[in-house]
């Protein structure tokens, strides 16, 4: 029994990690007042960029260095997803385009790129067939060598690849920056009331750009984790599914606080797979379980609007572009 629970927790964490990356990235973005609905696309791009990076490295014919096996896809993912966030930033901040429309277009674009290259990378540049980057996947999955000796605890909590721990570190660091540094203070002010922030001498445009691009980069790592660690280095079209939207749901569930999203991600991850662990559950009720994260999020959303506690509200200028009116 305890074994089952341990496996369940472990699987829940595994499922939760891409969501955690996505939601941390989106929280940072939203704190600057940008509602980036392109996050699902950005996460796809994060995944495919890492695949492309790893593919060229693996097929270059050199002896594979495990460090490079990790570094190349990692920075490819970061680069690709930050580039996407830059497109979004340019359109919404500099050109003041509608954030919803831009975000949705970005998602269409990102998912398209992901599925296109995922499906035709090898037929474009190689011998054809589906891509499998087992070597890279193994490097990402590598965990502490001593885990085997740590018993159940080790197996449950210490048997992940480094990206899993990184996601938690990033969420904690983000939480600390937001709440305990000058940069975080200024960022929150930008998302709440850009005109006031502007009057206080904060460069609103720069903060919005940086937060959106860094947030995009972090979200992209979620795609990287999914492809390289969870799947183990293969791409299946549409395999990433709705996780990007679930990450946005998690932002609300966590009330725009990265610290909350750590536990929230495990909870969401658990709901994603809990049907596998409840004996006698029919396939139909599985689908209801998968619905739960969204229902819970809606409930949270409605509750915070009824309670009107100011700390729990979305950043006040979320979704609006800022234009300093001249007189």
């Amino acid at each position: 029994m305890i074994d089952i629970i341990a496996t369940f927790i472990k699987q829940a964490i595994i499922q939760g990690i891409p969501l955690l990356y996505g939601s941390t990235g989106e929280i940072i973005t939203e704190k600057s007042g940008n509602l980036n609905l392109g996050i699902p696309g950005i996460m796809y791009i994060g995944g495919i960029s890492s695949v492309i990076g790893a593919y060229f490295y693996e097929s270059s014919g050199v002896d594979l260095n495990p460090v490079l096996c990790v570094v190349i896809p990692f920075f490819s993912a970061l680069f690709g997803s930050m580039l996407m966030a830059l497109i979004y930033s340019f359109l919404t901040i500099t050109l003041r385009a509608n954030q919803n429309v831009t975000g949705l277009a970005l998602t269409t674009f990102g998912v398209g790129i992901g599925n296109f290259f995922g499906g035709s990378l090898s037929s474009l540049f190689g011998e054809g067939g589906s891509i499998s980057l087992i070597r890279t996947g193994e490097c990402f999955k590598a965990t502490f060598p001593f885990v085997e000796n740590l018993g159940l605890f080790g197996k449950t909590f210490l048997s992940f690849g480094f990206l899993a721990y990184l996601s938690i570190v990033i969420a904690l660091v983000a939480s600390w920056i937001l709440n305990h540094t000058r940069v975080g203070l200024n960022l929150r002010a930008v998302g709440e009331n850009p005109a006031t922030a502007d009057a206080a001498g904060i460069n609103v445009t720069r903060y919005k750009y940086l937060a959106t691009c860094i947030g995009g980069g972090i979200a992209g790592l979620g795609g990287l984790y999914f492809i390289m660690d969870y799947i183990g280095g293969a791409w299946t079209n549409g395999g990433f599914g709705d996780r990007g939207w679930l990450a946005i749901a998690l932002v609300i569930f966590a009330l725009w606080k990265p610290k909350h999203s750590i536990l929230g991600s495990i909870l969401f991850g658990g709901l994603f797979i809990v049907y596998l662990y409840i004996p006698g559950l029919s396939r139909s009720s599985q689908e209801i379980f998968k619905m739960l994260p969204y229902l819970v999020t809606i409930l949270v959303l409605v509750l915070i609007s009824i309670r009107r506690r100011r700390e729990d509200q979305p950043p006040a200028s979320l979704g609006l572009s800022y234009f300093r009116e001249e007189r």
Partner: peptide
């Protein structure tokens, strides 16, 4: 020119 959800001290050092 104050940010509502921030505390007095935070508003004072803002920017």
């Amino acid at each position: 020119k104050l940010v509502d959800v921030l505390s007095a001290a935070e508003n004072i050092v803002l920017g």
